[in-house]
Nucleic acid binder design. Structure first.
Length: 214
DNA sequence: ATCCCGAGGG
DNA sequence: CCCTCTGGAT
């Protein structure tokens, strides 16, 4: 994709959502962090169902530590990989209390040192909670970057590097948001909805899928 | 490369 | 019934 096409690509996605909300959907960076840790290999619907009760019981890291691993596990039972996730959420909360005064650190290194937090989760927190110009390459963005030809790469890390190299400065802050929504609702894994895709003309994916018969 | 591991969709 | 879903650690 040429730089002009890349510019157009983002201009079109941005036009669909010109002023993405910058307020957190969760009350605090801590709750966002926990929600993203829980979202690994899980559906967003499953996480959205479990988090209200979890955060009602433990809104911050102090309460999460007090709640204890067993009760956390109980509250996230309906999500896959719940054993690992309960352990990580509890351990991570304890570290925030011990090392960061109960706050969420704002650097990639500190975030990635937390249990259950890898590069993708760290990048989401940095972007969504702290407004940094990072792009978290999850399966949605990995697929969109490769399928469209926007920023091809064989590994998520390679795609992230490619994205950071091609995203025009004006779009860097919200590129993550626009790309993930595009992947979630239009450029779907099984059956991309090319017939209603706003960037189909710029996309390398072939054959473009036709609209389903009524 | 393998394990973790429930819910929902096709 | 089989597969995927906003991964991370070993």
């Amino acid at each position: 994709m040429t730089p002009q096409q890349t510019e157009q690509f983002f201009a079109i996605l941005a036009a669909a959502d010109p002023e993405p909300r910058t307020e957190l959907l969760y009350d605090t960076p801590f709750q966002l962090l926990v929600a993203v840790v829980l979202s690994a290999q899980a559906t967003d619907a499953g996480v959205n169902k479990a988090t209200p009760a979890l955060f009602a019981a433990a809104p911050g890291p102090a309460e999460m530590v007090a709640l204890g691993e067993d009760r956390i596990r109980d509250l996230v039972k309906t999500i896959g990989l719940f054993n690992t996730k309960a352990k990580n959420v509890h351990a991570l909360s304890a570290i925030l209390m011990q090392q960061y005064g109960g706050t969420v650190p704002e650097t990639r290194e500190a975030l990635q040192a937390l249990p259950g937090v890898g590069r993708k989760t760290a990048n989401v927190v940095l972007n969504v909670a702290f407004g940094q110009e990072t792009c978290a390459v999850d399966t949605h963005i990995f697929r969109v970057a490769n399928r469209t030809g926007l920023a091809p790469g064989k590994t998520p890390d390679a795609v992230e590097d490619a994205l950071m190299a091609v995203i025009p400065p004006a779009y860097r802050r919200h590129a993550h948001h626009w790309l993930i929504l595009h992947g979630r609702y239009i450029c779907i894994a099984r059956r991309p909805q090319c017939w209603r895709c706003p960037v189909a003309a710029l996309c390398a994916y072939e054959p473009k899928t036709p609209a389903p018969l009524p």
